[in-house]
Nucleic acid binder design. Structure first.
Lengths: 168, 168
DNA sequence: TATTGTTATACTCTATAACTATA
DNA sequence: TATAGTTATAGAGTATAACAATA
């Protein structure tokens, strides 16, 4: 159907001790995407284990810092997650004193989110750790390659073209 | 610390109804990687909902098909997952009759995995559905771009350079 | 009616630890 | 001793559904 499906080059070795044949999987973009994501995620967790901060928590913390006063739903939409999921995440960040909720004066349904001073310290520490983490991957690329790589990734998720059902 | 942290261009709009400022996050490779992964994952699930096949299940099924007789641990290592996680996945595929375990004659600890005829039919159906799914993303790229994109992703995960602690 | 936040709940994915049978 | 498989379990992440307050 697609490219070469080459048979095992060494038929006397049925033990598969080392590498497996990827076959058609080799052509599947999402397959490579997921493996890359796993590799980065695992390194991130190992790097941040001292701070107990997941990539998503870090992202939300940084987003709140860059958009002080926005609401949970704003952040949830930006990161493509459910509002209930965001709720749990915000609870955790608030529970450790990194952020705080303040009821909006304009729309009393909304809770505006802000990074606390404690959160600022956490952010500084986390950003420092992230530099090492990032470098471990980015130093495999030239500056130009890196820009193109990010542009490719953006092209995948940018428009909501593939996102299923805007909630009815 | 890094690039421009431009303030809100329209200070009269504190509602953040639309887009948020990504700030430093914009420079973080893992951030783009995760969003792209989410976009592809969600489209995959929507596409495969009729077959109730997750990306990982599909990958394992196809891997078994391409490497008939390999063991669970071989597949787990290939996909960077734990043997217990693979166990659950293999149970599910076996439960729906898509694969079968056969005890190895050479090493009686091992269970060799094979795709059944039922599994072959599932694979054919799934591959057909995947074509549409894949095209929804790949048609945003030229052939050359796609190859480079995959090469970039491979560069991220290929060597285990970043994988933490080979189990002591 | 629609939206924001909230709670409760359930389901999936994942890894850890402990066990067995083999090697 | 080490490895393959297995089981039990617990944690994190996720979404769904229902509800209250507000718009």
């Amino acid at each position: 159907m697609d490219a070469a499906n080459q048979p095992n080059e060494d038929p006397d070795q049925p033990e598969f001790s080392g590498t497996l044949t990827l076959g058609g999987l080799e052509q599947v973009l999402g397959f490579h995407l997921r493996l890359a994501n796993v590799a980065v995620f695992q390194d991130f967790q190992a790097t941040m284990s001292g701070l107990a901060l997941t990539p998503k928590q870090f992202a939300v913390l940084e987003l709140i810092d860059n958009n002080a006063g926005a609401s949970q739903i704003d952040f949830a939409q930006c990161l493509r997650m459910d509002k209930a999921t965001m709720m749990a995440l915000v609870n955790k960040l608030e529970g450790r004193g990194a952020i705080e909720r303040r009821p909006s004066q304009v729309d009393r349904r909304r809770q505006e989110l802000f990074v606390t001073e404690e959160g600022q310290r956490l952010l500084v520490e986390a950003k420092a750790l992230r530099q090492g983490h990032e470098a471990r991957f980015t130093d495999r690329f030239s500056e130009a390659e890196l820009e193109q790589f990010k542009a490719f990734l953006r092209r995948i998720y940018q428009d909501g073209r593939t996102l299923p059902r805007p909630p009815a």
